[in-house]
Design a protein around this nucleic acid. Sequence first.
DNA 1: GACCTGCTGCGGTATG
Length: 815
Amino acid sequence: MGKSRGHRVVDQWLESKNWVWASFQKKAAAAYLAGASGMVNAPTGSGKTYALWLPILIRHINAPKTRKGLQVLWVTPLRALSKDLHRNMELACLEMNLQWEVGIRTGDTHSQDRLRQKKRMPDTLIITPESLHQLFSQKNASTTFKNVHTVVIDEWHELMGTKRGTQMELALSRLRAINPLLQTWGISATIGNLDQARQVLIGPQANLEDTVLIKASHKKRLKVRTILPQKIETLPWSGYMGIKLVDQVVEVVQQHRTTLVFTNTRSQTEIWYRTILERYPEFAGIMALHHGSLDREIRDWVEDALHQERLKLVICTSSLDLGVDFRPVEAVVQVGSPKSIARFVQRAGRSGHQPGATSTIYFCPTNALELIEAVSLRDGVERNVLEDRPPVMQAYDVLAQWMLTLAVGDGFQERTLYEEVKRTFAYQLMSRTEWEWLIGYVSTGSSSLQVYDEYKKVELVDGVYQVLSRKVALRHRLSMGTIVSESSLKVKLQQGRYLGQVEESFVTRLKPGDVFFFGGMSVEFLRLHEMTVMVKKATAKKGMLVRWAGGRMPLSSQLSAFIRQRLAEAQANPSKEKEFTKLAPLLELQARRSLIPDANTLLIEQGETREGYHIFIYPFEGRLVHEGMAILLAYRLSRLSPITFTVAMNDYGFELLSDQYVDVAALLEEHALFSTDHLVDDIYQSVNATEMARRKFREIAAISGLMFQGYPGKYQKARHLQASASLLFTVMSKYEDRNLLIQQAYQEVLTYQVEEQRMRVALTRIAAQQIRIMKIAKPTPLAFPIMVDRLREQLTSEKLEDRIDKMLQQYSHEN
DNA sequence: GACCTGCTGCGGTATG
C-alpha cells in the first residue's frame, strides 16, 4: 500500500526535522485518520500536540480543496498556552508549505482580529471554553460551526472536574448535533479515572469501546527526597510557612541550574522571597516570584526569564502547575503538604523536561507531622496511586447560562435542546420536570421572581426561544463563564506599573503610611484612587503580609489512607525510614500521653483545661470531612442533651470544645453517634447548613444570571454583591418549594463542603474500627495543632504568640 | 527571637 500524499509530506517534514515519530503518536494518528474519537494520555513535553496536529494536517492535504471555513477547534483551558501552541502549529504548516490558517480566539484577541474572524473564520481556532460559548452567543452560530469535523480538548483532566468541564460537555453536544460525525479528542495527564474522563468527553450514550485510549509508553522517572529538619518540636504548632528550613532549601537551589519552589499560598511565596533575599542578598536579580495575584505583565516577564535561563529560583503557587514547558528547570521543591499525590507528581513534572530525563522533587515539611506525609507521598508515587477527578454533575446554574447563551444567539427549540442536553454526561439524569423548571426560570425568572421584569429574559417566538432585548443580550455576554472571583482592587506604584491585586478586606484595614510586602517588595500605602491602591516603594523593610481569602484544600483520601497506615508503623519500626527516626520524640510523647492509632483504630482523646472540656477525634480524612463530622457530632450530641460546642479541625482530626463534660464512652455504648443513618438530614438540621448553602449560592446566582456582576472595569463592592445574593437566597427559599438553584446550593454543600460521599465511606470505616477513648491530662502532639488553629481564628497574632508561649510552658514538660 | 495560611482559571460595552 502506497502512502497518501499527506503522509509523504509529513514524513518528509519529520525527516527534515530529524525527529522520530513516537509509537504513541503513530497510534493516535492512525486512529484519528480512521475516523475515531478518543483520548491521548501522555506527560507534558512528550509531543502529544503533534500526535493529533499532524494527522489533522494529513487529512487536510488529502481532502478536496474547497473553502470550508472553521473545521477544527482546539480547546485550551489556559490563554497562556494558546500562543505557544499557535506558533508550533503555524510553523508546521509553513514548513510543509500548506495553506492552512490557524487563529486564536480568547479574551485577549484583538477586536479587529475578532471582526476579521467573524467575516472569515480560520481553518483551526485555538479557543478557551468561555470564548467558545461566546461564539455560540452570536447570531448564525450554527453556520459558523457547520463544517467543524474535529474538536481537540487539551488538558482535559484539568477542565473535567470543574464547571468549565460542564460547559465543554454542553458545547460538544451542540457541535455533535450540528455534525453527528464530529471527532472528539481529549489530551490528558494521568488521573485515577481515565476511562470516565473519556466517557464524559464522548457522552454517556456512546460506547467506550468504539473510542481509543492512546497511552505514551515511556514512563517519567521521578525521584522524591525529603528535606529533614535538624530537630523537631514535640508539640508541633509552628504555622505552615516552613521558613525554618530556608537554609537547606537554598542549599538545594545552589546545586541546580534552575529550581521552582512551590508553596501552598500566595502570602507564603511572598514570605519565602523576602526571607531568602534578607539572608542571601546575592539572589537579587536571579530570583523571582509568581502567583495568581501578581499583575499579568510581571508574570509574563517571569515566565520569559525562566525560558531564557536568567533565573536561578522562582517561588510560586500552583500558577506554574500547568502549561508552558520550562526546560531549564532542574529541580522542584514542594513546601508543605501538596494535599494530593497527583498534584505532587504534576509539580515534580515541571522539572527534567528533556525526554528521558529524571524529575527530582524535594519535599520540605513545614510542620513535624508532615514528616509522615513525606513517607506517604513517596508510597503514593512508588505505587503509582493517583486521585480521581470526578466530573461535576447536574449543575443547573451552568445549564441555565447555556440556555441563555443559545437564546442570545440563534435561539433554541425546547424539545431539541432537551434531547441534546440529556446526551451530556452531566445532565443524563435530568428529569423532564427539572427541565421545565429551567425553561420557566429563563422565561419568567421562576415563580418567586415573576413580578420582576428584569428576570424575564427569554421569549418564545414561533416555537423558538430567543432573547429579544438588547440589554439582556449585552448583559449576558458580559457575564458568561463559570469562574466567580472575589472582588479585588488593583495595586499600582505611584509613578509606575501595576503590581497586582489585593482583596477589598485587606485594603479596608490599611491606613496611609502603612507598609506591606507585595510582589517581592516593600511598599507604602498612599491612598485609594479610583478603586486603585496607590503605593510607593518603602524604605522600611518590615511590613505586613498581604492576605488573601482563598480556598482550603483538604488532604486527599488516597494520601490520608497512606498516613493512617504509616503512623503506627512509624512507632513500631522507627528505623525503617529516616523520617520516622526524626519523628521518634514526638511519637513517644503521643504514646506516653495517649496512644498512636493504627489503621484499625479510631482514637478519641478527652481532657480538661481552663478553656473547658475537650474532645479530640482523629479520623485522618482531610479537613472538609472533619468539618462535616464535627457539625454532625455536635448536632447529634446536642439532641441527646442540650449542649453547645466550639469546633476546630485540621487534616488529621477535629475538636469539640464545651463547658460541659460529655461521657463519650457511655454515649457511644447507647447511641450510634457515627452512624450513616439520616446523615443528610442531620447535616441539614445542624445550624450551619443554611449558612453554608447561602454562601454557595453567591456563585450559583452569578453563573445562572440572577445577579449581574457589573460592567467590566466598573467596580462593584463585594458587600453589595453578597447582599443581593443573600436576599435572592432568602426570597427564593421562602416562596418556592422546588427551586432548582436553591437545591443545587444545598447539594453543593453536601458534595464539596462536607464531602458527603467521602464522609460516608469514613463513617462506615469507623463502624468497623476499634474505638479507643483516652483520658489525657495534657494536650498531645496530635491535639496541640488543632487547639492552636482554633485560637488563631479568635486572637490577633501578637496575642496568639503570647498564648502559645504560655501553652508551651504549661504543656511541654515531661509526661 | 520566632512567627506570620489558605490555589488556579476566563470573560467583557461597537452598526447597516
